[in-house]
């Protein structure tokens, strides 16, 4: 029943610089009236790590969640290899989500499940309900899971329960879960905000290495400007729901940062904005079922 060899769609065959994702006029207005995104236009190629920075509430988290429609956009287009995700029905959206891996700030592992189950959760889009219940995954997927666990430094951890791991280890599992999807795009939302500075750097290095190895473009929300400078090929800055800067890290100077962060003393400590609320989904309520904006 498991579609073992459902390989992700073919890699952009021509050059490395083919367009993978195009966002056009993306706008999100929450029911509260807050305009979180205001006509965002954005393109990424088939490779490279793009960091998204900006103060809390600037729209970073909404932006990344709109791409796989965990947050339903109000208007605009999101083209993944030319297919508009906004218009997709539930089945189409699930198929698109299979191609998009996501890594979260709070890791979002299922704590009572084993590491292996958490990693294999990344293959659920290719497995039927009965096999999900019986935890039957294609041998190729299990192989891939073992390989990925070894790659992220968790060799031998497969039968540990996720809640027995440290923060850094949990995020490694989160990374493995995203990568076992063999994604064509990685969405990474504040991957290091719940980690200590040293682990944060290790995790960012790992994300960067894996994105490069697998030629997968990654969009990484970061509130730590220093990490963004070090690990990204390109930095995009949001302010009040708009993109106010989009260039190589080298072009990010003090004047620009003043513009992004409103002239505060941002240089004092790049990682000290502890008072920033965690990047939780902005709308609480139903956690399920609004996939296609249709009551289901």
């Amino acid at each position: 029943m498991a579609r073992a060899n459902a390989k992700a769609p073919p890699e952009g065959g021509v050059g490395g610089e083919r367009e993978r994702l195009r966002v056009a006029g993306l706008t999100k207005v929450y029911p509260t009236g807050k305009r979180a995104l205001d006509g965002v236009d954005f393109v990424i190629a088939t490779s490279g790590v793009t960091a998204v920075i900006g103060s809390s509430g600037a729209g970073k988290s909404t932006f990344i969640r709109c791409i796989n429609r965990l947050v339903e956009p109000t208007s605009g287009r999101i083209l993944l290899d030319g297919v508009d995700l906004v218009g997709l029905d539930r089945a189409g959206l699930r198929a698109a989500r299979r191609r998009i891996g996501m890594i979260f700030q709070e890791f979002n592992l299922v704590e009572r499940l084993t590491v292996m189950e958490n990693v294999l959760a990344g293959r659920l889009g290719h497995v039927g309900l009965i096999d999900t219940l019986r935890r039957r995954f294609a041998p190729a997927d299990v192989d891939a899971a073992f390989e990925l666990l070894a790659r992220v430094g968790l060799d031998g951890f497969h039968d540990r329960r996720a809640d027995a791991l440290s923060g850094g280890q949990r995020q490694r599992v989160g990374i493995a879960r995203a990568l076992i999807q063999r994604p064509d795009l990685l969405l990474v939302d504040e991957p290091t905000a719940s980690l200590d500075p040293r682990t944060a750097r290790q995790i960012m290095r790992l994300v960067r290495e894996l994105a490069t190895e697998r030629a997968t473009p990654a969009i990484v929300n970061l509130h730590d400007v220093a990490l963004a400078r070090e690990f990204a090929d390109r930095i995009v800055a949001f302010s009040a729901g708009r993109i106010v800067f989009d260039d190589a890290p080298a072009a990010l100077d003090a004047a620009t940062l003043d513009r992004i962060y409103g002239g505060e003393d941002w240089s004092a400590s790049a990682a000290a904005d502890d008072d920033a609320p965690p990047a939780a989904p902005a709308v609480r309520g139903r956690v399920l079922g609004d996939d296609a904006g249709v009551a289901g």
């Binding site: 965990l70 979002n108 293959r123 879960r177 999807q181």
Partner: peptide, 9 residues
């Protein structure tokens, strides 16, 4: 949210 994001039903 994470499981939903993998394309699960």
């Amino acid at each position: 949210e994470a499981i939903r994001a993998t394309g699960a039903r």
